[in-house]
Design a protein around this nucleic acid. Structure first.
Length: 785
DNA sequence: TTGGGTAAAACCTCG
DNA sequence: TTTTACCCAA
């Protein structure tokens, strides 16, 4: 029997990618060209045809959901092969019992061994083996029960360092932006010293200093932030050749999906694993080894977390043979689109053609023309939502094959979901909002997880402080300060060591000692049971004995009830985790919880309309897509307007949105939108002017907005002559930070500039009167200085 | 130490 | 409009 029958389902380019065995390969895969399929089939082919040991395969996906789906598909593919070999028929033709038996066999011998996951998940797994071998230059150590700090934990640490440790003004060194700078450094594999080296000014040096203290704090908590999960293995591999050698030999075949969205540190990780630390130009030993990356530079939309699509563009020179496109053996292009109608593809191709930084690639349609794209101009965001839901209802009614799950509403920012939710609720249409508040980010869930984290890792002082007084134990700020100070005086020992010592607590905590001891004993009880009891048993007992569950019930309001049931759901999640995972330790569960995302349980084709940001929609597809809020300042977002490269990224984001649609695409924008509570005028996005009018129908009397004549990203120069106030001002007349005088509100400072060209609005903050958004053409504004 | 109140800031995208 | 941060009385 030909074991490779399944390859017949592929087109020639896909087949070339899948059958590639050793050496480097870049797969340039346009939207909807079957890249997930190529990845899945490739893994199957490695094992089936080349007898690759599943233990030698590492596959990096962009989301947990993609990882789960990939495992699932490989399992089915394999089970199907085995069914044909053993029983002579397809998997689906077997009895349920035989199917289950076959699949569990495949799981045991194959899927279980495959390392498939996100960079974060895979790295945290590596760290659970080897983190204790890492030696920090300042002598900090981490153990395998490390905590993973989320963004708010991280920002909290930064704030403490800025305000308390370094006595700086947190207005000037905003914890959020400092944390962002640190994150950026980590994503480029820079240590505090390395960051400091290229800082020309005071601010940069201060940030490097905060970074240094921040890393110390993390170490004291035995904690890592998200960026460390990847940075730490890279540092470890760089300092410890034996450890690197082990993982290098282990992962002979490396696959990376969404390669355009990798950052420098992730790239370093892949390079180290591939070359075992040999310099790139000296490495050519591809014996029984491959590095296979898949991506599309046109869909690179994560530069804000330091993703760099030039890494993809450089792959050919870096790992590959560097030959031109027609001769190369290390690149394959997938350009046939199997997803969308040709009208949708035309629109997408035209739009993205406005970008300058691209890899040469077109998307070829394989399907019919389809309907035209409809562009709707609404009066305001409520009218926009009304239009969308009206369309949704009539399409659903007229097309029996469409389910609610076939519809998606995609927007630039999470805050836009509300108007749609209201209308959908009014018509009782089921919907799911993806993103926004994650399940694991809810207050009550974070509380319970903090308890578990303390039990698992008593050095986690951040978590101790979160729950030592939840529920109320009469332990307030001053008590905590005293205990903290004592730990500090004793040479910076972990707070837990003070708490765990009864005499110390009694001496230090005074009246509150009882509460503190109660807490300490609670934690000790469960620490003792950590070895013998399951996580689910611990959590159940803990919720009772800590009094947390009782305190949650509160006054029995709806909100209280919801909190209560969320905690219940968390318990179920632990149970489920224990059933489904080999390593069901508390540490593993906590890592899983930290790394889970809202996207993980999105059901495609289910019975609910999906509402999500364009970022979240990457990799998904829907029969009908509504791309909403396509207005200047919102999309492209005003923060990107001054930077041409940033506008290109917004355009790629728009491209991603358009290419999610299979059958129908609607684009909407409003003339007026509620922002910060007050109504503000809005103008159509520059992207609308870039769409080919012949493929688009619109309700706007004047048709599609005209293409902007002048380049939108003119660099603002200081010496441009400023027009008189109120006389048709140009963008260049105003700069954020300028002080202006308004006839009614008086003097205020410009905080943001929305829009570009002739249509701009200014956000001006007037002391005592709040923020106003003004059109300089309609309001007489005078420059103050 | 706790709870309620008011004022100011925030809304860009995410693991 | 909604969320968070800080102040003060009990």
């Amino acid at each position: 029997m030909p074991a490779t029958d399944f390859l017949a389902q592929l087109n020639p380019s896909q087949r070339r990618a899948v059958e590639h065995f050793c050496g480097p390969l870049l797969v340039v895969a346009g939207a909807g060209s079957g890249k997930t399929r190529a990845l899945t089939f490739r893994i199957a082919n490695l094992v089936l045809t080349h007898r690759t040991d599943p233990d030698n395969i590492l596959a990096v996906t962009f989301t947990n959901k993609a990882a789960k789906e990939m495992k699932e598909r490989i399992e089915v593919l394999f089970a199907d092969q085995e069914a044909r070999v053993k029983h002579g028929k397809a998997l689906s033709a077997l009895t349920d019992y035989e199917q289950t038996k076959l699949r569990s066999h495949v799981y045991k011998n194959l899927t279980k061994h495959l390392w498939i996951g996100t960079f974060h998940a895979l790295c945290s797994r590596i760290l659970r083996f080897d983190i204790e071998k890492y030696q920090h230059p300042d002598g900090y150590r981490w153990t395998k029960t490390f905590s993973i700090f989320d963004e708010s934990d991280a920002q909290g640490l930064v704030k403490t360092i800025v305000v308390k440790t370094l006595n700086l003004d947190d207005k000037k060194f905003n914890p959020r932006s400092v944390r962002y700078a640190i994150s950026n450094a980590k994503n480029q594999n820079l240590s505090p010293d390395e960051l400091e080296r290229d800082q020309p000014n005071y601010r940069g040096r201060v940030i490097a200093d905060v970074y240094r203290h921040y890393q110390k704090s993390l170490a004291e908590n035995n904690a890592l932030d998200f960026d460390d999960l990847i940075l730490m293995p890279v540092k470890l591999f760089q300092q410890n050749p034996e450890v690197l050698d082990y993982w290098h030999k282990r992962f002979r075949h490396i696959l990376v999906d969404e390669y355009q969205d990798t950052n420098r540190t992730q790239y370093d990780l892949i390079r180290l694993l591939t070359t075992n630390g040999a310099a790139m130009d000296r490495f050519n030993d591809w014996h029984h080894r491959s590095t296979f990356v898949v991506g599309d530079a046109d869909q690179s939309i994560y530069s804000f977390r330091a993703a760099d699509f030039t890494i993809l563009m450089n792959f050919q020179n870096d790992f590959g043979d560097g030959l031109p496109d027609d001769d190369t053996r290390s690149m394959v292009k997938l350009e046939e689109n199997y997803r969308s109608t040709s009208n949708i593809l035309e629109v997408a191709n035209h739009l993205i053609d406005n970008n300058t930084e691209r890899i040469d690639k077109v998307l070829r349609a394989t399907r019919g023309e389809g309907e035209t794209i409809f562009c709707y101009r609404a009066d305001n965001e409520t009218a926009e939502a009304d239009f969308v839901v009206t369309q949704l209802r009539s399409l659903e009614l007229q097309n029996p094959e469409l389910r609610w799950g076939d519809f998606a509403i995609l927007y630039r920012t999470n805050a836009q979901s509300r108007a749609f939710e209201e209308v959908l609720t009014r018509y009782s249409i089921p919907y799911q909002v993806v993103g926004g508040l994650r399940f694991y980010d809810r207050r009550e869930i974070k509380d319970v997880l903090a308890y578990l984290r303390v039990i698992n890792n008593p050095n986690d002082t951040v978590s101790i402080k979160r729950v030592i007084n939840v529920p109320r134990r009469g332990v307030g700020k001053s008590t905590l300060d005293k205990l903290d100070q004592a730990a500090d005086t004793l040479g910076g020992i972990p707070l837990w060591e003070i708490l765990a010592d009864e005499t110390s607590v009694k001496t230090l905590a005074g009246r509150s000692a009882k509460g503190v001891l109660q807490f300490a004993n609670l934690i000790k009880t469960y620490q003792a049971r950590l070895e013998s009891a399951k996580g689910s048993e611990i959590i159940q007992d803990l919720l009772e004995t800590s009094g947390y569950l009782d305190s949650l019930k509160g006054d029995g309001t709806d909100e209280d009830m919801e909190r209560f049931s969320n905690v219940q759901e968390l318990y179920n999640a632990v149970l489920q985790f224990e059933e489904q995972n080999e390593d069901s330790s508390l540490t593993a569960f906590l890592a899983n919880a930290s790394l889970s995302s809202d996207l993980d349980d999105v059901k495609e084709g289910g019975n609910a309309v999906s509402l999500m940001t364009l970022h979240s929609s990457k990799g998904l597809e829907f029969q009908v897509v509504f791309l909403v809020g396509v207005e200047q300042g919102l999309f492209p977002n005003f923060r990107s307007l001054e930077d041409p490269a940033a506008v290109e990224e917004e355009r790629r984001l728009c491209y991603v949105g358009i290419t999610r649609a299979k059958e129908r695409l609607f684009i909407t924008y409003a003339r007026e939108r509620r922002l910060y509570g007050s109504r503000e005028p809005a103008s159509p996005s520059l992207f609308l002017g870039e769409l080919p009018p012949e493929y688009i129908t619109t309700n706007a009397a004047q048709g599609l907005p005209k293409r902007m004549a002048a380049p939108i990203n003119t660099v603002r120069t200081q010496n441009e002559v400023s027009a008189k106030p109120g006389s048709g001002a140009h963008e260049s007349d105003w700069t954020a930070g300028d002080v202006v005088v308004h006839p009614a509100y008086g003097a205020g400072e410009i905080t943001h500039i929305f829009g570009a060209g002739n249509k701009i609005c200014l956000a001006v903050k007037f002391p005592g009167q709040g923020r106003k958004i003004l059109d300089p053409k309609l309001t007489k504004l005078q420059r103050a200085e």
